[in-house]
Design a protein around this nucleic acid. Structure first.
Lengths: 104, 104
DNA sequence: AGAACGCTTGGCCATATAGCCAAATAAATA
DNA sequence: TATTTATTTGGCTATATGGCCAAGCGTTCT
């Protein structure tokens, strides 16, 4: 690249869409669970403890954002993490939280 | 620690709050700008191109989440990044986006 | 084929968020 | 002290999001 490319408005919108998909406690929980291996929707429903349709919508959102991918096998649909780097977010998030608690 | 501590529901909520504060294009833009050094609110208004009150509210949100801190000097209030690790998110976000574009 | 299972989709309601304008506050300057 | 400058806060509206229930769809099992 010849020039330092300024980050365009649309880039921030695209990034924000991905961030948004991660910005929900249930979805973060599902992601942590998926980091241990693929899971079917019903597994995640048991974990999340909310309606199956709600879980399904959360997963559709994550899929649309590019975070997870799904595969139908038999009666079940299995989801797995597609971009493991999102797991690094957790460490940073926790450091934000401890930093905030430390200084207020 | 004797036991692997299971991540509690409240932990996910706390993390999600931080993620939420990052899940907006304008706020991501402001964070990238702040990564180059501290900026006053008016600098960021020029960058974001929206109402000053809107910018101020975005910053208050980031501050509440623990991402930025502020300091009043003279007439201006200067904001700076408090947790540089959030910048690592950008690389991951972009890799999510390219991965998504590659495979659909 | 019909019933059962696993999941997704549509519809609806309640709540949360983003934006602007106007008013309030705080500090610097006249 | 009065005025201007820089920012925050309150109030409002429009839109987005999350949740449930009910209905739909594709597989598997009988």
């Amino acid at each position: 690249m010849l020039f330092p490319i300024p980050t365009a408005k649309t880039d921030f919108e695209a990034r924000a869409k991905v961030m948004k998909s991660l910005a929900h406690p249930t979805r973060l929980m599902m992601i942590e669970e998926l980091s241990r291996g693929e899971r079917c929707v019903c597994d995640l429903r048991d974990l999340a403890g909310c309606d199956l349709s709600t879980v399904s919508k959360h997963l559709a959102l994550l899929k649309d954002a590019g975070i997870v991918e799904d595969e139908k096998r038999g009666k079940q649909v299995y989801y797995r993490l597609r971009v493991p780097c999102v797991l690094n977010f957790f460490h940073c998030l926790d450091s934000v939280l401890t930093a905030r608690d430390r200084l207020g």
